[in-house]
Design a binder for these strands. Structure first.
Lengths: 109, 109
DNA sequence: TGGCTCTATGGCAATTATAGCATATATTGA
DNA sequence: TCAATATATGCTATAATTGCCATAGAGCCA
């Protein structure tokens, strides 16, 4: 059966942009750390062990994608998760990883 | 509160690799088209309107990530979705997009 | 005011991703 | 066998991503 894309090119690009924001290990660490709490850039920098400017840029990517929002308090910037559906992401990704592992092990036999 | 990453670096890289496979509009079109049915490369090529080799490479990316699997029948290759949790992905992404749109509209006022 | 801290940004180099062309491989059928 | 079709793979040019350094801006406090 042949098909046409159901949505516009722009729609798929917007969707891909969201997925792209999730497509970096450091940003996944950040999102997980922000699960249920806010943290400042300095603590996130300690957490991921990269340069502060690098962390700041990752946070900008997440913010641009609408995944997090920030709050300024004095000189500090506190970030928190803005979306509620990340749990489903993690579960799905873990499912895929488990499947891949299983398939890989089966292939070794 | 300070935190340490809950998982290993490799774990986050593996997760990011899955997300990365979803981070391209063409691959999203393909996955959506393969929702509930298998399709050959030729029809997918028509669908996305790119070079056949480009589509083949996108399919290789999705296959490598474990999102799709293929079946060879004669000279044809039929691909189908291998994971069951994509619906949650689409819904979450649409939720984020809707939130972003709302926030953007609010900002224009 | 001046120094200190925290965060964001500009710039650059290195790496990675992407697209299409050309081509290789494999299957089918005349 | 030969031609035609479907798919996969090198290859190259281009674009995007990433990390860190240097630095700018802003708040805080002596």
């Amino acid at each position: 059966m042949k098909r046409k894309p159901r949505h516009s090119k722009q729609r798929y690009e917007a969707r891909a942009a969201i997925a792209k924001a999730l497509a970096h290990p450091t940003r996944l660490i950040i999102l997980e750390a922000l699960d249920g709490q806010e943290m400042c850039v300095c603590d996130l920098t300690d957490l991921v062990g990269a340069d502060q400017s690098t962390v700041s840029k990752h946070l900008a990517v997440l913010k641009q994608a609408g995944m997090v929002e920030d709050r300024k308090e004095g000189v500090m910037a506190y970030y928190r998760v803005k979306v509620c559906c990340l749990q489903g992401f993690w579960e799905c990704i873990e499912t895929v990883l488990a499947e891949n592992l299983k398939a890989h092990q089966a292939m070794l036999k």
